[in-house]
Amino acid sequence: MPESHDFFVAADPDSVRTRVGDALTREGYTVEGGDQGALRATRGSLGLTLLIGGMANDRTFHTRLDVQVMVAPDGRTVARLLRGSGKSAIKGGALGIARGNRAFEQAANAIHHELAQAGILTESVPG
């Protein structure tokens, strides 16, 4: 499973940041601004996840994702989705790993769909 996913976009960083945040919000994440224009998205309850681990459902299993928004040398905006801190295995063993992988994949798909539907996605590269 990739640890990151880069979305190359033909739009300004602010509008990309807004679209990515909207896509993650629709997936149930709480999205906050981070350093240097990054986004931090969290979903679920850390306390509940630590208590019941992998038995938590997709929406209550604690997940954190980070998104860096930057400009590539060719002038395109890049939104890089990164797995956040907090290891899924510690929070639920094999089930936790599967939930973490699924959350990352669902978030990447939601961002891809949002940017493609807007007609601004030029390239999508898992890393």
Rank of each mutant, 00 (worst) to 15 (best):
residue 2 P to T: 13
residue 3 E to K: 14
residue 4 S to L: 09
residue 11 A to S: 15
residue 12 D to P: 11
residue 13 P to Q: 10
residue 14 D to W: 13
residue 16 V to F: 06
residue 21 G to W: 05
residue 21 G to T: 10
residue 22 D to S: 15
residue 22 D to G: 14
residue 25 T to S: 15
residue 32 E to W: 06
residue 33 G to Y: 05
residue 36 Q to F: 09
residue 36 Q to A: 11
residue 37 G to M: 05
residue 38 A to H: 11
residue 40 R to V: 14
residue 42 T to I: 10
residue 48 L to F: 09
residue 49 T to F: 04
residue 52 I to C: 04
residue 53 G to M: 10
residue 54 G to T: 06
residue 55 M to A: 13
residue 56 A to V: 05
residue 58 D to E: 12
residue 60 T to F: 12
residue 60 T to A: 10
residue 60 T to I: 12
residue 60 T to N: 12
residue 61 F to E: 02
residue 68 Q to C: 07
residue 69 V to R: 01
residue 70 M to S: 15
residue 73 P to I: 06
residue 73 P to M: 06
residue 76 R to K: 12
residue 76 R to N: 09
residue 78 V to P: 05
residue 81 L to Q: 03
residue 87 K to E: 12
residue 89 A to F: 13
residue 92 G to D: 01
residue 94 A to N: 11
residue 97 I to E: 08
residue 98 A to H: 03
residue 100 G to W: 00
residue 101 N to R: 11
residue 105 E to V: 07
residue 111 I to H: 00
residue 111 I to E: 00
residue 113 H to F: 04
residue 114 E to I: 02
residue 115 L to W: 01
residue 119 G to K: 02
residue 119 G to P: 02
residue 120 I to G: 00
residue 123 E to H: 14
residue 123 E to D: 15
residue 124 S to H: 02
residue 127 G to F: 00
